[in-house]
């Protein structure tokens, strides 16, 4: 399955917004993601894509836009 499509689906479920049109927007600055959302994202990545990310690997500045999250997921898959 396409990782990018899956990640975007997870993000749109989590934030209630379609983020595919703003792939470089900072999700934390816009308030769409917070710590709670980050953890939900990590758990979804685990269950949908089998990607294991420990919480201490989650450096916010590396996960703050849809593009970065997709890139992270692709590199870890």
């Amino acid at each position: 399955m396409d990782i990018k499509a899956t990640v975007l689906q997870i993000l749109s479920d989590l934030t209630g917004n379609d983020v595919s049109g703003a792939m470089d927007d900072n999700l934390f600055d816009s308030g769409l993601l917070d710590s709670m959302g980050s953890v939900q994202l990590l758990l979804q990545l685990q269950s949908d894509l089998g990607i294991n990310v420990p919480v201490s690997e989650f450096e916010r500045s590396e996960w703050d836009t849809p593009n970065k999250i997709v890139a992270k997921a692709e590199s870890l898959a």
Binding site: S35, M36, S38, V39, L42, L43, V55, S56, F58
Partner: peptide
């Protein structure tokens, strides 16, 4: 946030 909140939520 990183060592209590996120870990507990997780």
């Amino acid at each position: 946030r990183d060592f209590i909140y996120m870990r507990l939520v997780f």
